[in-house]
């Protein structure tokens, strides 16, 4: 299975290495700037390595962002768990217990994942205020669970479609019902589905900004909002926002590096349906 390379090996590797460098430059810049002393940061010398690594930027950024990080952890863990569990049950129904019109209902679900969220923002804001959930984490969790339903349902439905119907039928001959089949057959097979979906949801919720800034008060701001405020001030020295960016990116970046395979599967599940 040897294949001839279209551009010749030299050009191929030259192009790949140049592109990889271009992709890594922002990461390099972030790390070196984060490790500099504020006095050493100047634009004309922004590519230089720091004279000696200075870690105080990280501790300062950590002190400023700690409440936001804690909020984000609570928010992300709760919302990911709830939306994944609901998505699993929905996907099970949509793939194995279809009813008249269930395909249409499914398409109507999917539509919810493609809307620009501005279009539901005002009623969401009003509703959360009306039920006293505006401003805190529970309201934000509710929003993420509800609007996470389309994608989690989609991933699980496609995942369960691979479970052969013969397994279902033989279980039904044994008089296993809706819950028994889920518990005995579907759930044990769905661990990879849970991994893919919860990684996807974790990334989405951790990185979300619009609801964070419109639906929470200062004390409940997630990390994206905290970082935007830290970086938005003009007078701030740039090692702080850079260290903050690293802190904000690290949890998902680690997931991506160690569980990249599942991350990509979630990525693909969100787009290619057939």
């Amino acid at each position: 299975m040897t294949r001839k390379l279209p551009f010749g090996p030299f050009l191929l590797y030259a192009a790949l290495i140049l592109l990889a460098l271009a992709y890594l430059l922002p990461a390099y810049m972030t790390v070196v700037t984060a490790l500099k002393l504020p006095a050493d940061i100047s634009l004309p010398r922004s590519w230089d390595l720091p004279a000696a690594p200075n870690w105080s930027g990280f501790s300062e950024a950590m002190a400023l962002l700690k409440p936001n990080l804690i909020n984000s952890i609570v928010l992300t863990v709760c919302a990911t768990l709830l939306s994944t569990v609901l998505g699993s049950i929905n996907g099970y129904v949509f793939s194995k217990w279809q009813f008249r019109g269930s395909e249409i209902v499914f398409i109507l679900f999917l539509f919810g994942m493609f809307i620009p969220y501005q279009v539901i923002l005002i009623p969401l804001f009003q509703t959360l205020r009306a039920i006293n959930l505006y401003g805190g984490l529970p309201g934000l969790i509710l929003a993420h669970v509800v609007y996470g339903l389309p994608i989690t349902t989609l991933i699980f439905r496609n995942f369960y479609a691979q479970i052969p119907d013969a397994l279902m039928e033989s279980a039904m001959l044994d008089h296993a019902g809706f819950f028994a089949i889920y518990k005995e057959i579907v759930f044990p097979l769905s661990i990879p589905g849970f991994v893919v979906t919860s990684i996807w949801q974790f990334t989405q919720i951790w990185n979300e900004f619009l609801w964070g800034i419109t639906l929470t008060r200062h004390t409940a701001n997630p990390i994206t909002v905290g970082l935007a405020q830290l970086a938005g001030g003009q007078a701030v020295s740039w090692n702080l926002p850079m260290a903050g960016s690293i802190l904000a990116a690290l949890p998902v970046l680690l997931i991506y590096i160690f569980l990249g395979r599942y991350f990509i599967r979630g990525l693909l599940a969100g787009s290619v349906k057939e």
Binding site: A27, T30, T33, W206, A228, A231, A249, V252, F263
Partner: peptide
């Protein structure tokens, strides 16, 4: 390498690129 930016939030990307 080509996929890692996908895991970042727009806020992180924006902060880094504003400096770049």
């Amino acid at each position: 390498i080509f996929l890692y930016p996908m895991s970042l939030s727009f806020i992180v990307t924006g902060t880094i690129w504003r400096w770049m």
